[in-house]
């Protein structure tokens, strides 16, 4: 399955472009916003916090999208039945998508980070010791969301594909990407605490502002990641069985 994704990317300039197109637009926009605010506020960390958030959030968003897109592309091609009629296991299909998403996200994030450093003088390495655990937690949550989207699209068909573009964005306001959790309304804060990536951004902000590593936040984020990954895998397994019981793999659009 990794091989299939690699071949598709080779023949599709758009698939290569999209690794950077939207993230670059986001970075440029937020870079300008951050620079504007930095001149007018005493926000600790200032530009670094906003740009760091953009780059890190893109890891999660991009990962979720990659995992969803690989399945959607097979459905749009009407070739997915070829795969399911082969000895390929659902687990192999997913693991292949996860492996390839990791490669694309690492590549895309690296290029993005270089652009941000060159354009706005912010290095993602400034998040210090929190970088690797943050990256892994963001990846894990992106995979968890991606598994949920794959399950939903598998069960409900291409009608559910809007989730591929929007699920992470729906969560983003509560994920405390650009602001601390305690700035959210009271009723939303428990929800924010239940999202792994909010702990990543709390830890990143604290390090950039005050140089302290909040290992507890990162540990909580990692633990929540495991919950979401297991839940995503279970839901996908249930969805796969459901479509086979209902004969939905035979329907048009597969």
């Amino acid at each position: 399955m990794v091989l299939q994704q690699a071949y598709v990317m080779k023949h599709s300039p758009l698939r290569i472009m999209e690794m950077l197109y939207w993230p670059l637009i986001e970075v440029v926009l937020w870079g300008f916003i951050a620079s504007y605010l930095d001149d007018r506020t005493n926000l600790p960390g200032g530009v670094a916090i906003l740009l760091g958030a953009v780059v890190l959030w893109d890891v999660c968003f991009r990962t979720q999208q990659e995992l969803a897109m690989s399945q959607l592309m097979d459905m749009w091609d009407r070739s997915i039945l070829n795969l399911y009629a082969s000895p390929m296991r659902q687990s192999e299909y997913v693991v292949g998508a996860i492996v390839f998403s990791f490669v694309r996200v690492v590549l895309g994030t690296t290029l993005l980070a270089v652009f941000v450093a060159a354009s706005f003088g912010f290095s993602i390495l400034d998040v210090g010791a929190t970088l690797v655990p943050s990256f892994l937690i963001l990846l894990g949550f992106g995979w968890g969301l991606g598994l949920l989207i794959r399950a939903t699209v598998l069960r409900f068909g291409s009608n559910a594909e809007v989730l591929a573009w929007s699920l992470a964005l729906l969560i983003q306001p509560a994920a405390a990407v650009f602001y601390p959790v305690d700035s959210l309304p009271g009723w939303l804060q428990p929800i924010s605490h239940a999202i792994p990536v909010s702990h990543v951004f709390e830890a990143a902000r604290e390090f950039l502002a005050h140089g302290r590593v909040l290992w507890g936040e990162l540990a909580t984020g990692a633990a929540l990641d495991v919950v979401y990954l297991v839940a995503g895998a279970l839901v996908l397994g249930i969805a796969y069985k459901s479509v086979r019981v209902r004969g939905l793999l035979s329907r048009p659009g597969y």
Binding site: Q4, Y7, S12, M73, D77, R78
Partner: peptide, 9 residues
């Protein structure tokens, strides 16, 4: 009713 993947040789 199945197709070839468009983006593969």
């Amino acid at each position: 009713y199945v197709s070839l993947p468009w983006r593969l040789k």
